Amino acid sequence: MGDHQKIHPVEADVEAPPTTPLVAPGSHRSEKGVPDPLPYHSSIGSIEPITPKEKKRKNCCCRCLCCTITTLILLIVAIAISGLVLYIVFQPKLPKYSIDTLRVADFKLNYDMTLYARFTVKITASNPNDKIGIYYEKGSHLSVWYTNTKLCGGSLPKFYQGHHNTTVLNVILTGRTTNATALMNALQESHQTGQVPLVLKVDVPVAVELGKLKLRAVRLVVTCQLVADSLSANNMIKITASNCKFRPEI
């Protein structure tokens, strides 16, 4: 009878170190021993892990952007509220301007074909506000134009216009135009129709006073479209139409 061999089970080596699954660098193991997926950047052709430094910089940029937007919104709201309060307290009204009379003291064509003009303009400025004063500063300029040709110019005096005040100004404008033969011919044709179109331009620095607070001066540009019956010398010209508009220039 042949030899019989017994096969005994192989006992595990208790002294051998336990085997651990391979874990990619930078990953974290969960409580069950399963490695967590790697955070990554998606880019063309590669996957890169997000470092803590990059995450911190990204969060910092987001906070700065949010703070900037919030500050701008608060600033806009504050300006709107301030403007509303000023409007309610002072109730501002636009000033009014009118050209009352235009007198031609001198208007002649000299031998050298230069045109000399001297006008006297009567301007009425009205301030209808209860709590707002108006300072008309130095550096103003007035001019009278026929089509695209300047006939004469001058300036306004410096003065302060108080609440509910109406100020009448008599301003002298003088000027000399060279090569004025064609201009005189055009003016004579307008005389025959009895309608001479003129434009009075006013550019004056103005400062508004709110209560006792004087604001920074801005330039006020006034343009008056006029129609006169003639431009005869030593004659009070009748203004048949007048339309004045103004705008501030900061």
Rank of each mutant, 00 (worst) to 15 (best):
P248Q: 08
D130V: 04
V221S: 08
S42G: 04
A80W: 03
T147A: 13
I134R: 00
I7G: 06
K131Q: 12
L142A: 02
P92H: 11
L231Y: 01
D106Q: 12
D203A: 10
I237S: 05
C244W: 02
P197W: 05
G194M: 09
V222Q: 07
H4S: 06
F90S: 15
L109N: 01
A117L: 03
F107V: 05
P25I: 07
A241E: 12
Y146Q: 03
S30G: 12
F159Y: 11
G162Q: 03
V227R: 10
E31T: 15
G83D: 11
S43Q: 08
S27D: 08
S42A: 04
P35D: 04
K201F: 13
G162R: 02
K53R: 10
P9M: 06
H8K: 05
F246L: 06
T167N: 04
T223E: 14
L22W: 15
F119W: 02
A12N: 15
M113V: 13
S42T: 06
I250L: 11
V34N: 10
W145V: 01
V221C: 07
K201G: 06
V85I: 15
L75Y: 11
M113W: 05
L102R: 00
Y111S: 15
F159Q: 03
Y97D: 03
D3G: 11
L22A: 14
H41Q: 07
L72N: 09
T149A: 06
A125G: 06
P21V: 14
D203W: 06
T124D: 03
K108S: 13
M113P: 03
V206T: 10
L169A: 02
H141Y: 08
F119N: 01
C152L: 00
M184I: 09
K245M: 12
S82Q: 06
V218S: 13
N129M: 01
L173N: 00
G133Q: 02
V199I: 12
K6G: 05
H4L: 10
P18N: 08
Q195L: 08
V34M: 07
L109A: 06
G139S: 00
R216T: 12
A228T: 09
I73P: 03
I73R: 07
V104E: 04
T174H: 01
G33R: 03
T177V: 15
P197D: 04
K214R: 11
A207S: 10
Y136W: 02
V204R: 00
A180C: 04
P128M: 02
L86M: 10
P25W: 05
G162E: 01
C61P: 01
T71W: 11
Q161L: 05
R219C: 05
Y40A: 06
K53L: 12
T124K: 12
F246K: 03
T19G: 09
K150G: 07
D112W: 02
I132F: 02
